[in-house]
Write a protein that binds this DNA or RNA. Sequence first.
RNA 1: GCCCGGGUGGCGGAAUUGGUAGACGCGCUGGACUCAAAAUCCAGUGAUAGCAAUGUCGUGUGGGUUCGAUUCCCACCCCGGGUACCA
Length: 635
Amino acid sequence: MKDMQRNWIGRSTGAEVDFKIDGLDKNLRVYTTRPDTLFGATYMVVAPEHELVNEITTPEQFDAVKAYVLGAALKSDLDRTDLAKGKSGVFTGRYAINPINGTKIQIWVADYVLMGYGTGAIMAVPAHDTRDFEFAQTFNIPIICILDPKNAPEEMRNKVLKGEACWTEDGAYINSSNIEVGIEINGLSKEAGIATVTSWLEANNLGKATINYKLRDWLFSRQRYWGEPFPVIHWEDGEVSVLEDSELPLPLPEVEKYMPGETGESPLSNAGDWLIVTDKNGRKGRRETNTMPQWAGSCWYYLRFTDPTNNEEPFSKIAENYWMPVDLYVGGAEHAVLHLLYSRFWHKVLFDLGIVSTNEPFQKLFNQGMILAFAYETASGSKVPSDQVEEREGKYFSTVTGEELHQIVAKMSKSLKNVVNPDDVVTNYGADSLRLFEMFIGPLDATKPWTENGVKGVYNFLRRVVAFFGEKGNIAEGEESKETLKILHQTIRKVSDDVRDMKFNTAVSQMMVFTNHCYKAGKVNHQTAVTFFQVLAPFAPHVAEELWELYGNTSVLSFHPWPVFNEAYLTENTFEYPVSFNGKVRFKIELPVDMPTTEIEKAVLTHDHTDKWIEGKSIAKIIIVTNKIVNVVVK
RNA sequence: GCCCGGGUGGCGGAAUUGGUAGACGCGCUGGACUCAAAAUCCAGUGAUAGCAAUGUCGUGUGGGUUCGAUUCCCACCCCGGGUACCA
């Protein structure tokens, strides 16, 4: 999860390097994480949107470049990434001077370089970068190897040295010195190479060490109508002010259309009169049109929850101190780089400002798995809404086109219309059954398709609980049996542990074990029954409360403390040892738990079945793990 | 491509983290009840051989470590999710 956040933030360290443009009094600045490979730079690429494209392009190449830039602009982002398989680009006709060795290298325009990252321009080192290599091969650009892959297989190494293969891992520098300008990294390690070249660039004023992030905002940059408007006014004289506390909150204005403004501004720019404000001196101003869309507001809701009725401030220091940090954050993995990342960021800002008392907002994260559902797609892979699908003899067909479809498993979504409404389960089996089934279906963190196979199982369990404990004849007076007490207390322990570990499926199964035991035992006493109701209550609250009341209680069960298990009921006097020969279990033998190993050994060796397995062989060793297993090694 | 998960009966899933593989549930089979069916209750249910006692095989595949491996190590195959020309 933190890896995903790290990837999203995408911090990288490298250097910016200036290349002189041949015949122009300008520099082309690139960002690279590998300044050490400067000797291997054989061409440069600028993004189609780069501001210098027009200036760089020579008259002969102008039409070709213009056509290419236009073409790139028309491609959507999706197309551009979809076309990742093949590289495209066009030569600008212009050259740049490699500052480290004075070589003239071609400048190209290509859409595999993105304007939004770094400087929108790169130096290409085809021998040691797969993208550059692919491009250089496509357009017959020289490939110069400067890292000798000494530890690579011989065949591979030869290809790399000849510029016929790309090598992105470490190696020994070759062709990497220029005495005239005082730079020499041949023989250095990668780390030392990067440091040497970077300091050389800085000393000669040709570049500097830089840190870059690929972080994209995924929240405020996607403006929409629904969101809290910023309480900010831009005045005609250039002053910007925030609203008085007394003017808050600022509600959203009613608008006719929710589309973005004509200049691509937030939808609030369509709000007409609402936008214009005049102060008491007649000065005119315009309201800020940006809102806090989507989860911008919920990034801090947990703080407001600590003090929800406070009318003076978002939350009091006392309340914040008492409740924070949040014990548990339950959310899907899809929140990793969205809600969770923003929440952590905001919280850290508030912490630095001294407004909250913790550096992190959440103590523990739990990723619950997504519940998937069946969906349908055509042979060509396009999705068909589930309400346009009919089943005939185990095959699926579109009710619109009649085409045969195949069934896939995909996450539930509105667009696929494969959302399952749990109301049916509630109607047929009750809310407790639905609740219990969601816990019983499997581990909370597992992703799995929704199926109602098995709802019957938990429904049956609840029905058996009500049938057994609802029958007065099953409740006996007096002391509880040892066996029942043991299983009851095992159940308390297991359910307590499983709830703590959020393993609800096994907690439910333990309660089933207990109930099955009650049926076998035939009778249990009053105390056993009500203790079980307490355990059951968080899982099936309606059933548990009903039974609790049936037993003459007038208070609410949920307010009673959780039962505590008693170790004394769980201790055993004997243990049934599995006896194995060479690791294979052959029979079992019941022995006292405190029997010394020498006695156990004797008991095993004198057992009737033992002869059969040691016949004609000799015993090499006997391994006894107390109250676990006995293993006899024979040869 | 890269980064995470994960492969256990017909199915959903258990297994105290190296110690009896398959708890619990669904489904299926048989029995009881019923004129009959449903519901319910009881019993059985990994595969295979056997009337049985019992044997052999078995946790994606192949190897390794170990007295002992679903669990640890190495290589590979498959599935799911995330991400993607980030220089």
